[in-house]
C-alpha cells in the first residue's frame, strides 16, 4: 500500500518537472549566475581570510611561551568561549552577553549622534549660508573641534551630575564638528544656478532649506555624518570606561580590573566589527539618499 502511494506521487510529480526546469533556466539566464557570484565572493573573502589566518598563527606563536604577557588565540578561545559563542546570554545585572553591552552602547551612540546630526546640519547650514555667521562661528568651531573627546568628560560630569547624560554629551560634542564643517562646505558649494532657480520661484527659507539646500549638500553632509559616527564610536568606549554602566567600554575596564585579558580581546573584536558596520550603514544610507545628486 505504502509502496503504491510512493509510486503514485512519483508518477504525478514527473510530468510537472519539465515546466519547473524551464522556469528555472529562464530565471537563471536573467538574474542568477551562480559561478560568477561564487567567483566574486571568493575574490572578496579569500584574501582577508588568509590574512586573518596568518595573523592568528603569528600571534599564537608569539604569545605561546610561558613568559608571554598576552594570551594567545587558543587561550582566548578556551577562556572566553561563552562570550564568543553566546552573545545574548543574560545571567543578571552585570553578567550579560557582549551583544547586549554593544546594544546599550549603540543606544547611547544613537541618541548622542542623532542630536549631533540634527544640530550639526542646522548649524552647518547657518554657517554655510551666512557670511557673518561663518566669520563669527568658524574660528570657535575650529578651536573646539581639536579638543579630545575625553577632555569634555570632567566638565560634562560637573554640569550634568550624572554619568549617562555626560556620556551622551561627550558623543554629541565629538560627532558634531565634522557634521557642521562638511555641511557648511556643502552649502557654500551649492551652484549659483540652483539659488537663482529658487529665487525665481520665490521659495521661502524653509522651502529652500528642504528642497534645494539639503539635497544639494547631501553628499557633503553624509561625508560629515560618516566621520561623525566613527568618532562617536571611538568616544563612547572611552567615555563608558570612566562613567561605568553596562556598555561595552565599561566591560573592558571591568575585565582589566579583574585581569581577564581574553575577555578584553573578544570585546575589542566586537567593537571593531560594530564600528565597521556603523560606518558601512551610514555609507549605505548616504548612497541611497544621495543617488543622482552628484551626477550632472
Amino acid at each position: 500500500m505504502s509502496i503504491q502511494t510512493v509510486e503514485d506521487t512519483k508518477v504525478k510529480a514527473f510530468p510537472a518537472k519539465p515546466a519547473e526546469v524551464i522556469a528555472f533556466t529562464a530565471k537563471a539566464r536573467r538574474r542568477i549566475d551562480v559561478p560568477a557570484i561564487a567567483g566574486r565572493l571568493a575574490t572578496a573573502l579569500i584574501p582577508p581570510a588568509v590574512v586573518i589566518a596568518v595573523l592568528l598563527i603569528v600571534w599564537q606563536i608569539a604569545c605561546s611561551s610561558p613568559t608571554a604577557s598576552l594570551p594567545p588565540p587558543s587561550q582566548v578561545w578556551d577562556e572566553a568561549y561563552d562570550l564568543i559563542a553566546h552573545p545574548f546570554f543574560d545571567n543578571g545585572p552585570q553578567d550579560i552577553g557582549l551583544a547586549w553591552r554593544v546594544l546599550v552602547s549603540l543606544q547611547r551612540v544613537a541618541i548622542g549622534f542623532g542630536m549631533a546630526a540634527v544640530v550639526g546640519v542646522a548649524l552647518g547650514a547657518l554657517v554655510g549660508q551666512s557670511v557673518w555667521a561663518m566669520r563669527g562661528l568658524d574660528p570657535v568651531f575650529q578651536i573646539l573641534r581639536t579638543v579630545p573627546p575625553l577632555a569634555w568628560l570632567p566638565l560634562s560630569l560637573a554640569a550634568f551630575r550624572d554619568s549617562n547624560p555626560s556620556a551622551l554629551f561627550v558623543i554629541f560634542i565629538t560627532a558634531i564638528w565634522p557634521v557642521i564643517i562638511n555641511t557648511a562646505v556643502g552649502v557654500r558649494n551649492i551652484p549659483e544656478d540652483y539659488r537663482n532657480v529658487a529665487r525665481i520661484l520665490r521659495l521661502n527659507q524653509l522651502e529652500f532649506f528642504i528642497k534645494i539646500m539639503l539635497p544639494a549638500a547631501a553628499p557633503y553632509i553624509f561625508t560629515g555624518l560618516r566621520i561623525g559616527i566613527g568618532l562617536s564610536w571611538l568616544a563612547i568606549v572611552a567615555a563608558e570606561m570612566l562613567t561605568g554602566g553596562v556598555g561595552i567600554g565599561f566591560f573592558i575596564w571591568d575585565a582589566w580590573n579583574s585581569s581577564r585579558l581574553p575577555d578584553i580581546i573578544v570585546a575589542l573584536a566586537y567593537i571593531g566589527v560594530t564600528g565597521f558596520c556603523l560606518d558601512r550603514l551610514v555609507a549605505a544610507v548616504g548612497a541611497v539618499v544621495t543617488r543622482g545628486t552628484t551626477a550632472k
Binding site: N196, V197, I200, I212, P215, A216, A218, T290, G292
Partner: peptide
C-alpha cells in the same frame, strides 16, 4: 519673468 539658463540648471536629484 521665468529664465531658461544656459546650462539648464535642472536639479539633478
Amino acid at each position: 519673468r521665468a529664465v531658461v539658463f544656459q546650462n539648464h540648471s535642472l536639479l539633478p536629484w
